[in-house]
Design a protein around this nucleic acid. Structure first.
Lengths: 221, 221
DNA sequence: TTCTCTTGACTTGTATACAATCGGGTATAT
DNA sequence: ATATACCCGATTGTATACAAGTCAAGAGAA
C-alpha cells in the first residue's frame, strides 16, 4: 500500500545507492527520475532532499544532485565515533544492568546463528546492526540511539560488505556472545575488549570492503 | 542578497522556534506561512521539511506541522551524550596535541571575556558553543564534529538560557581557561574534570533554563 | 591562435492548480 | 437520546507551468 510517493522514491533510491547500483558521483536529475518513476517533480524533489539530509546525495545549488562519493577517512572516522558511543552504551548497561530475559533472547539468537553459519550470510549485516541497535536501545537513551543510527546509516553500505567470509561471521558470533555473557556479569572490562575487537575489525577492513562492494556492483550488471 | 527562499524561511523559522516565539505544539500550516512570507507553498514546504529533519518541527501526515514540544528527558540525554563525545574530543587532543597558536588564541579570547564579563552576556551562548566546536574541529574528525553539531542544535534553545547570571559566566570562563591550560600540558585527568564540570552544570539547570526561557518569551510580547 | 561575448540547452527554483485525505459537525434513523 | 452515516471545510499530497540561473559551445574580433 502506497501512502506517499516521496517516501517510496526515497526508499528506492536509498536501496539503489546503498546497493552500489549507481557509481559514486553519479548524477541524478529531477526530470530523469520523474521519467523513471512516472511521477511529477514534487515527490522526486522531496525524496532527493531527504537523501541529501541523510548524506547519501550531494546537492549543488542550481546544478543538480550527485551520488555521494566515498571518503575513506570519513568512514574510518565514523567507526571511531561509533566505538566511543558503543563503549558508553555497554558502560551504561554494566552500571544499570540489563533485563535477563532480553539477554536470554539475544543469546539464543546468536547461538542459533553461530550453529547455522551458512544461513546467516545474506542477512549478516542486518543481524549485526540489529544487535548493536538493541544494545543501544536497552540504555533507554534515545539521543544515543539516534546518534548511533545516524552513523550506522552512513556506514551501512560498507558494513554490508564487511562480513564476507565464514571465519569473519564466526568471529562476529563469538564476539556478540562474549559481549552478552560479560553484560550478564556486569564485567565492563571484558565487554569493552570484546566490543572494541568487534568494531575495530570493520574499520581495518574498510578498504577491502569497498573494493569488494565495487566488484559486486559491477558483476551485478 | 537572497539566494533561495527555502533557506531564508528555514532560517527565519529556526530563529523563531529557538527564540521561543512559538509555544510548544504550536501549529504551523503551509498556507499560513505562505501568506506571512508572501511566497508560494513550494519553498515553505521545503523549509518545513528541513525543520522536521532538524527536529525542530514535527510532521503529522496529512494533518499538519507542529512546533516540537519539549522533552525534558531527551534534553538531559543529549547532555549525557554530549559529555561522552566531548570527553573523547579532549582525550584525542591530549593524545595528538593541539597547535600552540590555536591554544594561544583561545586563551586570549577567554581571558578577555573573563575580564569583561558584562559585555559577554548577550553572546554568551554563541561564544560557549564556538569554544566547544573549535575543540571538536581541532580533532580533525569530521564525523565527531557533525555528531556534536546535531546535538548542539537540539539543545541550543536551552543553552541560550543556560548562562544566566554573572557567577555562571565567570565559572564558564574559568572552566574554559582551565581546559585550555590542561590541554597545553596534555593533562587528560585535569581537562576531563573541568570539562565534566562545565557540561554537567548545564544539565542540572535544564529545568530552570526552560522556565527562564518561557518567562522571557512571554515578557517579550 | 586566443580571448571574449553571446546564445541556447539543461537544470533547478518558484508559483499555482487540482486531487486526496482527514476531522468535525450535522442530519437522520433507530 | 444515541449512534451512525454523510457532507463539508481545512490541509497536505501531487502535477504542471513558468522563471531564473549555470555551464559550455561556438561565433567573432583582436
Amino acid at each position: 500500500m502506497i501512502v506517499n510517493l516521496s517516501g517510496d522514491i526515497y526508499e528506492q533510491l536509498s536501496l539503489r545507492i546503498l546497493g552500489w547500483e549507481y557509481p559514486p558521483s553519479h548524477r541524478l536529475t529531477e526530470e530523469g527520475l520523474c521519467a523513471e518513476f512516472q511521477v511529477s517533480r514534487s515527490p522526486v524533489r522531496e525524496a532527493l532532499n531527504m537523501l541529501v539530509e541523510r548524506g547519501l546525495v550531494r546537492k549543488n545549488a542550481r546544478q543538480g544532485y550527485t551520488v555521494r562519493d566515498l571518503d575513506l577517512q570519513e568512514i574510518k572516522d565514523s567507526y571511531d565515533v561509533r566505538l566511543v558511543l558503543e563503549l558508553d552504551v555497554v558502560a551504561r548497561l554494566c552500571r544499570a544492568g540489563v533485563d535477563g530475559a532480553v539477554l536470554d533472547r539475544m543469546e539464543a539468537r546468536w547461538t542459533q546463528l553461530r550453529d547455522g553459519l551458512p544461513a546467516l550470510s545474506p542477512k549478516a549485516a542486518e543481524e549485526d546492526e540489529g544487535f548493536h541497535r538493541e544494545l543501544a536501545e536497552a540504555t533507554g537513551n534515545r539521543v544515543l540511539v539516534r546518534a548511533l543510527g545516524a552513523i550506522d546509516s552512513h556506514i551501512h553500505f560498507v558494513r554490508r560488505s564487511d562480513i564476507t567470509n565464514t571465519e569473519r561471521l564466526r568471529q562476529t558470533c563469538v564476539d556478540h556472545l562474549e559481549i552478552i555473557a560479560a553484560l550478564r556479569q556486569k564485567d565492563l572490562a571484558t565487554v569493552s575488549v570484546a566490543l572494541r575487537r568487534n568494531i575495530e575489525w570493520g574499520k581495518t577492513n574498510v578498504e577491502a570492503a569497498i573494493k569488494d562492494a565495487l566488484v559486486r556492483a559491477h558483476l551485478g550488471r
